[in-house]
Design a protein around this nucleic acid. Structure first.
Lengths: 240, 240
DNA sequence: TGACAATGACTGACCAGTCAGTCATGTTTT
DNA sequence: AAAACATGACTGACTGGTCAGTCATTGTCA
């Protein structure tokens, strides 16, 4: 995409040779076992480890500076890897970014959606659902991932699509089912709510944004806000 | 990222001087006083006009590409102005960006906050408030300004501060007053709502984000969603 | 005819992406 | 078991291009 004009290729590589000496020390002597994640010894394991490190580093950089302003040099440095290594694992900056979002989102969804709680009230189920979301996202720096998606989504349709497919439509479908169950059971008396499950999660979304932008201006108790919201939806609250 | 056409690059630094001719015509002769935004003839007026054009152009570019990816060359071209002219009006890219948000936000707030409606019900007042917001923002491309603030806010504390001060705290204060009035009048029976006025506007915020990211996946009737939400808050709806 | 607004070619810094070369690790031979 | 060899993960200097910001020159108004 980037290049239109023909590439002049490389003319005469000057002196690429450079005594690489001290660098060896930085490599791995066989004697010392690693600090944290032990010596994987297998080449593949090592590679996977580095790939992981790159993703983690890239996450921090992209979240902190946005897509365009992030330098791959910084990502490499943070990952403790040379820039070229990034390109062994990802086609280009964009591929890294998209892959990043994917690997961040999937485990997030799995952690939140599953609780297919057995026989509690619908309110309890929704509360669990939302509580998990708020605790796993709004409270942590994972909120910034959401902000990143909102910020860059329109420029990366692949990401917006993926996010819609894997998170939004799935979550809303689940929510809608719960709402319908609540209506059938008489816990909920607003049948039209099933058309707009977004209303149920709206305060959680707002909490995420609030945390990112205004937390230092005025902190927000997301969980308490959500409880009040549920009182609105389900009528008077049972004692807590 | 994306490169446009093959840029002549700096192949042969030609003669710096270039007779600028036709451009003059595009300027304004002093003779004809035009209808609308016309031959201001005054230097100051002209200057203000250009400044305005730059802001409009910058708005479109920043909204479409984000801060970092926006090129001032493009802003200049879109504004029908040379790049240097931008620097006659703004210290640098960042100053332009911040000024931009400021001038976009203020009129927006004035258009929405004012309706200090006289003696309707609280629900009517809130509905008016929110309807104005949804019609003025969620429906239009102004929604992208909000997204822009969410996206770039953390990187531009001055903007987040300004936005919090001028829009958020002001809007929430107004809303809180309305909620308290509603409680006093007995229209609202959830006193704790006054602690979280965010709940009232949450669906509108969500609508804004939805429009930006998912409108093509699944359109959302923001106004209708908000009506359902108000039913939740105020209890059963009066016929509509 | 100044004085100042406007211009756009130019510079300097910056950065995505490349690739020749290095070396730790694993494999085969002796 | 040890030495010779093969592999490919890894490195980082380098290229081609981009872009914010500058400034000498030119145009225009009062």
């Amino acid at each position: 995409m980037t290049k239109t004009p023909a590439k002049p290729a490389n003319a005469i590589r000057a002196k690429p040779t450079k005594p690489r000496r001290e660098k060896a020390a930085q490599g791995r002597m066989s004697a010392q076992p690693e600090p944290a994640s032990e010596p994987p010894s297998g080449r593949v394991a090592r590679a996977a480890e580095r790939r992981e490190a790159i993703i983690v580093a890239a996450m921090e950089e992209f979240v902190g500076r946005g897509y365009a302003a992030t330098r791959l040099d910084d990502v490499a440095r943070r990952a403790g890897v040379a820039k070229g290594t990034i390109y062994l694992h990802f086609k280009d900056k964009e591929a890294l970014f998209e892959e990043l979002i994917r690997t961040a989102i999937v485990p997030l969804v799995n952690r939140i959606v599953p609780p297919a709680n057995p026989g509690g009230s619908v309110r309890d189920m929704i509360e669990l659902f939302a509580r998990a979301f708020i605790q796993e996202v709004a409270t942590t720096q994972r909120a910034d991932i959401i902000r990143l998606i909102v910020a860059e989504g329109p420029r990366f349709p692949a990401i917006a699509d993926f996010y819609y497919r894997e998170v939004v439509s799935r979550g809303l479908a689940k929510l809608r089912a719960l709402i319908e169950l609540g209506i059938a059971r008489g816990e909920l008396r607003q049948p039209e709510l099933a058309h707009f499950p977004q209303i149920v999660v709206a305060p959680a979304i707002v909490a995420v944004i609030w945390k990112s932008l205004f937390e230092n201006h005025s902190p927000l108790d997301a969980l308490e806000m959500f409880r009040v919201h549920l009182d609105l939806i389900f009528g008077e609250r049972r004692t807590t």
